[in-house]
Design a protein around this nucleic acid. Structure first.
Lengths: 134, 134
DNA sequence: CGGTATCCCTGAAGATACTG
DNA sequence: CAGTATCTTCAGGGATACCG
């Protein structure tokens, strides 16, 4: 249900308060057709539910259900794992391996678009260009 | 690092005590070439490390590092999420949606190969045919 | 704004044969 | 037993055009 590229990121952003199609689309940079399918699947799985727009506009919103909010613990465990194991030494590096043979290619640091090295707490939101979840 | 189809399942099985190439291969049913690449990547990421075979055979084993063992918390959060949200009512169902449009196709139950309905604690090991992790 | 429909491409995974 | 090399398939994702 949440093993694909985007679903867990959508849930994460929903936990941060996002509710609208356009919010998810812009914050994640996901293609709109994909987002449509992911949102529908999450609704079908009872992780999100459709709610009337809170701002009175004609559109709908996507709200987390209990099952969806419960995923916080998974996200939090993942976040902690990342923080403890990749930032305690101060190095925010990412391992790159050759896709075919799994051999190391290079390691690079996670930097913001302005070149600044990212702090741990930022990396949940700001990821390297080309990675999902920006 | 662990977002692909197999890596987290390999770590899970490693947490259950598996250490050998062949053990992972048989228990997960993953293609051997893929397993090679995944194991190498996990080693490169410092989640697994290569150790001499404990049984004295000429081969090596894959042992979890601290970073790898720390993933237990992620797996455990995931397991609990699954148990609480999909088994508290007694129904072990899986949602199937159309890949292209995300619309519901059908729901089916998780059954063992003999047709018996699976208990929650079994589903971490026994998944429906066609799913990874068997 | 919030989608839907269509086309295309890539890369993840599988099958299979071979090897030390 | 534990891989490696090669080929193939296919689902996931992206781009784009269109719509109410």
């Amino acid at each position: 249900m949440i093993g694909d590229w985007w679903s867990l990121l959508i849930v994460r952003n929903a936990l941060m308060g996002q509710r609208r199609f356009g919010e998810f689309q812009k914050s994640l940079g996901v293609a709109r057709n994909i987002l449509t399918v992911r949102l529908r699947k999450l609704v079908e799985c009872d992780i999100l539910e459709i709610a009337p727009a809170s701002d009175g506009s004609a559109y709908q919103e996507y709200a987390l259900t209990k099952k969806g909010r419960d995923l916080f613990h998974v996200l939090e465990a993942l976040r902690q794992w990342g923080c403890e194991n990749f930032f305690e030494t101060g190095e925010a590096t990412k391992v790159l391996v050759d896709r075919k043979h799994g051999r190391p290619v290079k390691k690079f640091e996670l930097r913001a678009e302005d070149g600044r090295l990212l702090e741990p707490e930022e990396t949940l939101l700001q990821l390297a260009p080309g990675m999902p979840g920006r």
